[in-house]
Design a protein around this nucleic acid. Structure first.
Lengths: 231, 231
DNA sequence: CGAATACTTGATAGTCCTCAACTCAAGTGG
DNA sequence: CCACTTGAGTTGAGGACTATCAAGTATTCG
């Protein structure tokens, strides 16, 4: 049962902080999916995983499907800070409470790790600690890239960046993207309205940059043009 | 000379990941300012500390003054992701290169830590490792809060949020803020233009929410109204 | 098949941007 | 000491991009 990595180093903290990805071996998900480490949970479309303000007892890793984390303003305006795909970690908090809500975008499976067991885990499992810190760093990098998008890009540029990013992350980068999320989700992620998202997509189609065989399936016919829009 | 904390725990990684702030003792800056750990550097207004794409050899901590980190689009549009005040850490990277530029907003003093020495540091200095990870988490929280601002708040709300945040961080929260940065910096931080920043400030003054004795000095006369705008 | 939901499209409006002129403060040099 | 210059900030007029409101089409699901 205990399939976790047992390789200890004398300095786990050093391993965590160590230089970029080049020093990191990719860690198969199975390594941290050991039953002793976390529990598997399934959610259906729009089901809540946790809510802003909940006690942050768990930390999650996506196994399959997509999860969105979002914040709300008092009047209901919503900002989706990220979509989490298979392998992504979400629910990282410094404080006691989640500062986000998390919901399944479609059907999704995640692993939940007890937060209080992290101390033990980190002490014995350097790889997990590394994964944790790397996950946080990736979140930070994404967030910073996204601030540039939200603050300074036009609607068309936002859509272009979004499509490229999703194609690289989700698809095999084969020039086609399956959108797991609704227009409303995309809008709330990019700081737009659903109408502007729709209009931008149809304009890209008119300009022969993409094709829209169906609403949730997009073919990136002219990636060069998309990249140009990426500014 | 070697004034660094020498308290070792058996599990530095565990200490890093351990539950929120409640488990952390505040660490005086002096503890990590040991000559062996980092070097002090001074910069003048608008001087570059590092540039997007530079080899990320150092990690910085602000001693005094204010530092801005920003990203540029190809056509010059700029997004300032954060202003770093005394005590803040910036220049954290996973990869080899900085994904930001960093410049002094006014005169500023920082401590530079060699990145390659971090492994050693973390192995021997749990407190520093903790500081590092906490700094990263704080950056992440700020970034996430800022995405909500950039994506979903109006100009007035952006300004209100900015003023409240700056008052809490920089001033003694005494109802007055000294702006260390120009209107252009504020605009590029909030995703606005300098004109809109100016207009929003004068409107807040007309509405008796703030006073503007001089361009860089703001009195928050009606904090309740500001908080209401915070949405 | 009908109802509900998701998405698209159109017309109009509003917020914020752009361009431009102007004020103000600070620094320079005659 | 006073033009002169320069950069920062303010204010105004007009325009553009995106939001809002509204209707229509497509898709999903019971």
């Amino acid at each position: 049962m205990h399939t976790m990595a047992t390789a200890h180093t004398a300095t786990p903290a050093a391993a965590i902080i160590a230089r970029g990805p080049q020093t990191a071996r990719p860690v198969p998900a199975a390594d941290i999916a050991a039953p002793t480490a976390g529990s598997v949970r399934s959610y259906t479309k729009d089901e809540e995983i946790f809510s802003e303000g909940d006690r942050a007892a768990y930390l999650y890793k996506v196994v399959s499907g997509v999860v969105r984390t979002s914040k709300l303003l008092s009047d209901g305006r919503r900002q989706i800070d990220a979509f989490h795909l298979a392998g992504d970690i979400f629910g990282i908090e410094t404080g006691d409470e989640y500062r986000f809500s998390a919901e399944a975008v479609g059907d999704a499976v995640v692993i939940a790790y007890r937060r209080c067991s992290l101390e033990t885990l980190a002490a014995t499992d350097t790889q997990f600690a590394q994964q944790f810190v790397r996950g946080m760093m990736r979140s930070l990098e994404r967030a910073q890239e996204h601030m540039l998008l939200l603050g300074r890009k036009t609607a068309l540029e936002k859509i272009a960046t979004f499509l490229i990013d999703l194609a690289e992350r989700a698809s095999g980068d084969d020039g086609a993207v399956d959108l797991p999320m609704s227009r409303a989700d995309i809008a709330d992620h990019l700081g737009l309205t659903i109408e502007t998202v729709s209009r931008s997509l149809t304009q890209l189609e008119r300009d022969a940059v993409i094709k829209l065989p169906s609403t949730r399936h997009i073919v990136l016919s002219d990636k060069a043009a998309l990249r140009r829009l990426n500014a």
